[in-house]
Simulated scan of single mutants.
Amino acid sequence: MIRSDAVHITPEILALIAGIDEFKGAWRALGTLAPDRLSALRRVATIESIGSSTRIEGSRLSDRDVERLLSNLQIKSFTTRDEQEVAGYAGVMELVFSSWQDIALTENHVKQLHRDLLTYSEKDAWHRGNYKTSTNSVVAFDEDGNQLGVVFATATPFDTQPLMTELITWFNEERAAERLHPLLLIGIWVVVFLEIHPFQDGNGRLSRVLTTLLLLQAGYAYVPYSSLESVIEQSKEAYYLALRQTQGTIRSDAPNWQPWLTFFLRALAEQVRRLNRKVERERLVLAALPELSLQIVEFTREHGRITMGDAIRLTGSSRNTLKQHFRALVERGHLEQQGSGRGVWYELK
């Protein structure tokens, strides 16, 4: 039985929830961003999410690699395991973004999402969409994809089915009863799901997909526009530590939810902070930049970088005119210059 009555609400947890919910309300009232700007934000966030979530599990593909792969998804032929994982994650993310209202939290839907997540992964064909049949442990990887060691043991295959039934029943009952704040409820769901580790592989990636699904269903509509996975990737040590501290206590009479919930809420707060910064930049750009500079910034946001050659092809303007715009954009803090001579390129600051 999941003892959610033992949640210790610290002042920090309260403050984090208040800040996240304040942004949630502000986002709902935000009508100033044009649809094409929202679309650009979502594309960047999606690339970051796919890249980060697969790298947490040992993939070596950069965000640039992910972007290239996404532009060729229609080929449906991916030679490496990393490419197969990225393609599967992209498909599931798109499904969640487009159909979150229709995906009830049931064991069948969780299994279906797992199957879709691994749909291109040849080595996972034997187990996708099915609970594990042999013991698996949570393993941490460093930034080079090397295994750092076992983080914690997980549920046995024998216990997995009843524990998943219990977790999903508990979540749906608690969500209906509204006894716990949605963010606390989702946080507990994630950490128990990872403690069970119900599938042979893909549990970490699936947990982050399900987090996005449950946040959208709880009304956090801004989630697709800022990458939570990127925040987690950049604080992996704290992520694994918080998991370990809480997961060792889950089956005890006094589960300690606080380490994980504090990490989870801090990550959500950082996701909000990054999106807020992007929105403010959008407003600044839209309000103050000449059309030519705006085109340069938009191209850079879409593609991650821009060269003088890109700008000439994009705008049809002369090199001298564009030099003035690049100089102004660098001086005003919109772009950062990289490289030198003929190899100069620019990225968002």
Rank of each mutant, 00 (worst) to 15 (best):
E270V: 09
I196A: 14
Q200V: 12
D21N: 15
I47W: 07
P198I: 11
H127V: 10
E143T: 09
S340Y: 10
V279L: 06
A238L: 08
E22C: 12
E331G: 05
T246F: 02
D5Q: 03
P224H: 02
G91Q: 10
W126P: 07
N130I: 13
S62V: 08
L261G: 08
F141A: 02
D65P: 10
Q74D: 15
R43H: 03
L289R: 02
A90K: 08
W126F: 14
H114S: 11
E122Y: 11
A269R: 08
Q338W: 04
N172F: 06
R342G: 09
R319N: 13
D5L: 09
L14R: 13
I188P: 02
L348V: 14
E67G: 03
L113I: 15
I13H: 04
L265P: 01
L215H: 01
T10A: 02
A176K: 11
G339P: 01
K236Y: 04
L14H: 06
Y222W: 06
L228K: 06
E229W: 04
G333W: 05
A6I: 04
D5K: 07
F326G: 12
H114D: 12
E83D: 10
A221Y: 12
V209C: 06
I186H: 01
E143R: 04
R313W: 12
P259V: 12
D124E: 13
R64Y: 11
Y220L: 00
I20H: 08
T321S: 14
M164Y: 01
M308L: 15
E302Y: 00
Y222A: 08
T165G: 04
E166F: 00
N256K: 13
I188M: 14
E237C: 00
E166G: 00
K111G: 08
L118F: 13
Q200W: 03
V151I: 10
V344K: 05
V138H: 07
L275K: 05
A40Y: 03
G304Y: 05
L216V: 06
S59G: 05
L261V: 09
R281S: 07
A104S: 15
A254N: 13
E347F: 03
K24D: 15
E282P: 07
S62D: 13
N256D: 15
Q234P: 01
P157R: 00
R251M: 08
F158K: 02
E291A: 14
S207I: 12
D116K: 09
A287K: 08
I232K: 10
L284C: 08
A311W: 06
W189L: 15
L210C: 04
H334W: 10
E331N: 07
K349R: 14
F193W: 06
L118D: 13
Q101W: 12
S252N: 12
S227K: 00
S98V: 01
T80M: 06
R175H: 09
T133K: 09
V86F: 08
R37H: 04
G341N: 11
V279A: 10
R244N: 11
S99E: 07
E280F: 01
A40P: 03
E270I: 14
G145L: 00
L30I: 05
R55V: 05
D253H: 00
